[in-house]
Design a protein around this nucleic acid. Structure first.
Lengths: 189, 189
DNA sequence: TGCTCTTGTCTAAGATCCTAAACACCGTGA
DNA sequence: TCACGGTGTTTAGGATCTTAGACAAGAGCA
């Protein structure tokens, strides 16, 4: 009776094999460093077992690589690297323009936006809250940023950084259009 | 004979409990969504077992959250959110200024920099290559960007996005200072 | 050819994970 | 007071992971 492979679309085996060969070590050498057996590494790489987190941690310690890095790996080839102004994808509205870098890219780890708020514009009545972290630098104009109860007006060259779980809101309280370059991870768009 | 807990400094249990309570679901509800038993979730949260990757994946699918996000979680409280111009930490040199947002933050997921290249400045003779992804938007001046063999000159409003493993290099080929807001993950500073 | 060293794979047996079911606790309401 | 529905915990046993060791295939060398 043949086993049903537990591939679960993560393919731990392929990732591990990729990492191991990239670092140029054999199954036995990695096993020795990690304090496990070479057979286990063979089975993991074939997806014949789904290793426990503690085993996988031990194995990766031998490389070394963190679990976070391991699961964040992108196994695909690399696509378009440069983007002209009209290749940024517009996601916002006339008042709040959000122009996304590398929107076409399949599995981004990073969202970088060129944001423009016309005078008086804001990110809506409700506070936003989602996973991840975000940061940005004001390059023109002035904007009021509210994060988890705290509010501050930021001008050109000033910056913010916060965990996105905190409720947050942006509002252009100046007279001119405000521009921000922002980044967040993991990508929300 | 009492068991030795396999904590391995990751504390999967605390992470899972934190995630579950943040999303406001009970062990039984999460178990139902994930297709596992509530007992397993209890055992994992107490670090009485080190779950297999496939089990942990199933559990996180019920939240939902990816394994990469899970292992990248920061369990600490949230610190300073706003940064004045002189609170950005200078990391570069007179020719290439790199001003880092939230440098003080212990475990950032994101590096955001305000970069300034004086006319003729570049990021050194050798190409750089490290893990992760990086992206940026030019806000003033013109810069020549080389990524894995390809070269392009970018001006204000134009952008780049690439995997950091690719050898890359920046060079200001214009006459005025060039400014860029850039982001990369995982953080390299 | 024959020996040696390396590689990755396979297979019992032991260790650990995971399930099913029961348990104890707490708050609510009849 | 008792039942009820909710919470998280515990435990025996079946399922799966992990080990120890054997196996086969390839490369280098005498």
């Amino acid at each position: 009776m043949s086993k049903i492979l537990n591939t679960v679309t993560i393919d731990v085996g392929a990732r591990l094999r990729s990492v191991r060969t990239t670092f140029g070590v054999s199954q036995r050498e990695l096993a020795r460093r990690a304090g496990v057996t070479n057979g286990l590494i063979s089975l993991i790489e074939q997806n014949r077992v789904s290793p426990s987190v503690s085993s996988l941690k031990k194995v990766l310690d031998g490389v070394p690589m963190s679990l976070a890095e391991f699961f964040t790996l992108d196994l695909s080839a690399t696509p378009q690297a440069f983007f002209g102004i009209d290749e940024l994808v517009e996601l916002g509205n006339p008042d709040v323009s959000l122009r996304l870098v590398a929107a076409q890219r399949p599995s981004r780890q990073l969202t970088v936006l060129h944001e423009r708020y016309v005078a008086g514009a804001a990110t809506g009545e409700d506070m936003m809250a989602h996973r991840g972290e975000e940061a940005g630098v004001v390059i023109r104009g002035r904007i009021e940023v509210t994060v988890g109860g705290a509010t501050r007006v930021l001008g050109p060259g000033e910056a913010y950084y916060f965990a996105s779980q905190l409720p947050h809101r942006f509002r252009n309280v100046g007279r001119e259009t405000c521009e921000i370059i922002s980044a967040c991870t993991p990508p929300t768009f």
